[in-house]
Design a protein around this nucleic acid. Sequence first.
DNA 1: GTAGGGTTAG
Length: 618
Amino acid sequence: MPIQNRQKKLVSTLQTVKPSTSSSKSNQDVAEKISETLITLGCKSLPSTYLLHLLNPEVIQLVLSNPLLRTKSYLDFFNFLQWKGSTSPYQHDISAYLTLIYRLFKDRRFALAKHLLNSVVINEDIKCTATVTASLLENVCDGSWIRAKLVDMLFRVYSDNRKFGEALETFEYMKNNGFKIDERSCIIYLLALKRSNQVKSAFRFLRKMLEAGVEVSVRSMTIVVDGLCKIGEIETAKGLMDEMAGRGIKPNVATYNCLMGTYLKQGAFEEATKVRNLMEQKGVAYNILTYTILIDRFSSCGKVGEAERLFQEMHQKGIIADIYVYTALINGHCRAGDMKRAFILFDELTERGLSPNAHTYGSIINGLCKVGNLEAAQMLVDEMQSKGINVNEVIFNSLMNGYCREGLVDEALKLQVVMEKKGLKLDVFTYNTIASGLCKAKRTNEAKRLLITMEERDVTPNKLSFTTLIDAYCKEGDLLGAKRVFHEMEKKGVKPNAATYNALIYGYCRKGNLKEAYKLRDEMEMNGIAADIYTYTTLIHGNCMVRKVDEAWELFHEMPKRGLQHNAVTYTAIISGFSKEGRSDEAFRLYDEMIEAGLKPDDTVYSSLVGSLHTVKP
DNA sequence: GTAGGGTTAG
């Protein structure tokens, strides 16, 4: 039957119903007629003009509740009514939605039911409180077993939408009405909380789960343990694990991975080893993630040999490395400057059918930038682009850093323009990298300008930005400016570190103001920041400059006592100090000592040693 | 529906 004829028929059908009366009987008649039309003719034939003034919520409710209607028909009817293209789209009330959701669920169309429930909770025009929604849901379910499923679905939907208050209210509703609460739904809520940085709420909720009689497993516990570890509450996490053990919930490999990973990130190797021992003791085998974390952390802190050993061990145990493992190991070698091994692994993973991704390329490109091979880095950038992998902010930052290290800060500035053109956001890394590149190129004014303006572009300067800025002022000899920035950073609650103090100490040394430099050294130590190799080297150099080589010598002696090893720069400073004073015996003795320590002297050492031979003792 | 990867300063 052609569409037009169908419509004519429907119109005539509808006209037989008196629209003026609003009694239930009449509503029922209308509903029945509409249902009949829908069953026999389908939804496409509904002419909106006539229907809209015959309809009211009760009629709609009746149509939607008609068991004779097939799912497709009432769904079409529902959508037809609120079709946005019509002149007056109809706004269903919440009961209409919930009725439809119930029917969809009954017809096992779960995804659609959930989708609609989602629109109920986010639609400002129809949404009710969680308790009201839950009880309305129960109403439309008419005592069916489905009501428990639907209230559970409501809990999940609230969680998915980060509506934590409503989700909790639904949870309480289920608890108070004797529903059995599924742990898997609670996990969705826990994860949503954790992802919104509401770890403490997740922690409290876990307790609520236990109180409500939910069968809590190690999964829920691990989510909370992980969250607590991530916010640095590792002791709370351990306390929780003990408490749960008392309830028979034992940690598994995932739980241990969280704990161990956190310790390793903090550099607490002994604690991490304790976790590993505990795993062994309890017979909990490592999985691929355990190995990834271990390989990644050892790689990051320069213990790439240990990372390689774990990589072998993993293979012996029959665990096949994935792209994460390869990337972690490659990164370790790149950081150590061993590009040869990095490329061997890169080829190996490709041969094994794995595809390098942006992180893998990022590691290799960064490694190449560090060793100054910018052409090769550029080639890899081209390669990844040809594979359709986007060059992201991190890779741009790596490249900029590479150029800055080579003194090619203008190339870095060109990349900045490219980044902006691509719509990539310059982040704190970008600004800090370029600023320090500018400082190194003695373009301190540009560096200062960049760091001062970054805030205007919504990038919050961090410790490093302030330190670089202080460094720029110090290099210009503007100690007042440097001090001003130092105080400004304190005021903003950004804590200085050793590098910050060292920049200032350098500034004072450069002016020959050793008194102030020493004062700063004492101040940093009082604030719990240990003087490091840079602090000492700067002070040694500063003393030598004002011909106080004995003071320098004293500092040089102090270093090993404090666990600081001399490096080539320290030796260079002290050797040239003695040389300048014409104390060539001491200078040569230190030179031999330096060679013996396996340190490579640079040109400065030679020239100062040669120079010392011509200097007449005062 | 547990847990994982690449970038910055002296």
